[in-house]
Design a protein around this nucleic acid. Structure first.
Lengths: 232, 232
DNA sequence: CGTTCAATTGATCAGCGTCAAACTAGGTGG
DNA sequence: CCACCTAGTTTGACGCTGATCAATTGAACG
């Protein structure tokens, strides 16, 4: 493992405060891999052998049932997945695949559980991480149950804008069909939603987004921190 | 507080292993209240002043946005809500109200956080609880995104049956309009779904459910532990 | 310059919500 | 004991949202 990777992991909220010996112990069993795009990383139902740490690239977490598939979330660096399964020694509830070329650190779940049992600082960091994950999915579920697809898209754009400097133009950072899946709709429907937003202060050309009338978009989107603020 | 309540709380997974002094400290600041049905307990967005422990009765956790409302879950005894908000000192993401006459213990969030900071056993119990909550919402989200409303109802019945002895007849344990909201549909749609299931081995009269052809129902429902098993 | 895959567009359809009306059950008062 | 009231439930008609299918356009890349 590169020293820079090691440093990056060490600075994650999850590992930041823990004892050095314990961190070393985790890193000793770890190994790093570079994956090309579209590689399967995990399959739902399998035992959670490794905690994954995404160093760069991006990965999609999705679920299947009865021949259907849906995207649950998109992981971006630097973040871990899927901590809950690792800690509980329970099967993964989602499958995962790389979207881009990705660099991923694999920490054996047994090591993570062993350190968790001993290191009290780490245990509390796990709590914070899990609480955030929980609130994240909960917001996702609210988003899905309370909003139409156009409303979800509108709020996604506002949030993405805020996270990228707040300027009127920015890049859509995701293939459109992935974005569609992530927002819980089909690519066709996303196309139509994008067109629908032209009347509400948004222009999208390719991956280039321009918010031409922020107030108008907000009137449609009605964003609320209780769904849309990732830090809330 | 009654001694029986105290015992019941003490035996919850969350409080079972913790130090007696710390448990006493939590209980010292606690107070118990008996609520009639339909009483508002929490409002989303408010600071999470108390960790709620439901001793008996039942409570609905729901969310609003832009004039719409949806039920996120139904809490049954003995369980706590909402731990993540308490630990993070973050606002509630859901509102709550009693459904039936309910007995609820209120633990000041500050006390919970203070004990969490000191008691390592408790901290790890919090991890288990949060991991389960996380996986629970995740399963809910999968249920919503991957299944139609008839399929959700079919699986709900199978699960409810399994949790109540597995016999062919049982009670529906919830007002139909609440059940509808919980399953993410309207009361009208639930009525039609119930009728649709008549051709698939289910008879429902009032609150009385009879599974007349379990195999046939399973053929429609296609249950999977990765969505339907609460212990998975 | 052609191949390939994503994105778009149109037509159609299934799922589900909305609205209104009829029906039912449980509780209340005469 | 029965008529009545109220709230939940059921039914029917209708419309909106979003999925599906098929065809076309567009863009990236060898």
């Amino acid at each position: 493992m590169r020293e820079t990777d090691r440093q990056e992991i060490r600075h994650l909220p999850l590992f930041r405060g823990m004892d050095s010996n314990n961190f070393d112990r985790l890193m000793r069993g770890a190994y790093v891999q570079n994956f090309p795009p579209q590689v399967d990383l995990l399959r739902e139902g399998d035992p959670s052998d490794f905690l994954h740490v995404l160093i760069n690239g991006s990965a999609e977490l999705f679920a299947n049932w009865n021949g259907r598939e849906t995207t649950m979330s998109v992981a971006r660096p630097v973040s871990t997945f899927i901590l809950a399964a690792t800690i509980q020694d329970a099967p993964w509830l989602m499958s995962g695949r790389t979207l881009e070329k990705s660099r991923i650190v694999l920490l054996p779940s047994e090591d993570v559980r062993a350190v968790f049992a001993e290191d009290n600082v780490f245990a509390r960091a796990v709590v914070s991480e899990l609480a955030q994950c929980y609130r994240g999915v909960l917001k996702d579920a609210k988003n899905l149950k309370l909003r139409t697809s156009v409303e979800r898209l509108a709020n996604y754009l506002l949030r993405w804008q805020a996270e990228h400097g707040g300027g009127p133009t920015f890049q859509l950072g995701l293939e459109k069909r992935r974005l569609a899946a992530r927002l819980g709709m089909t690519p066709e429907n996303l196309s139509r939603s994008i067109r629908a937003l032209q009347d509400h202060g948004v222009q999208i050309n390719g991956t280039q987004v321009e918010i031409t009338d922020h107030a108008k978009l907000e009137t449609l989107a009605v964003p609320t921190p209780l769904i849309d603020d990732p830090r809330c």
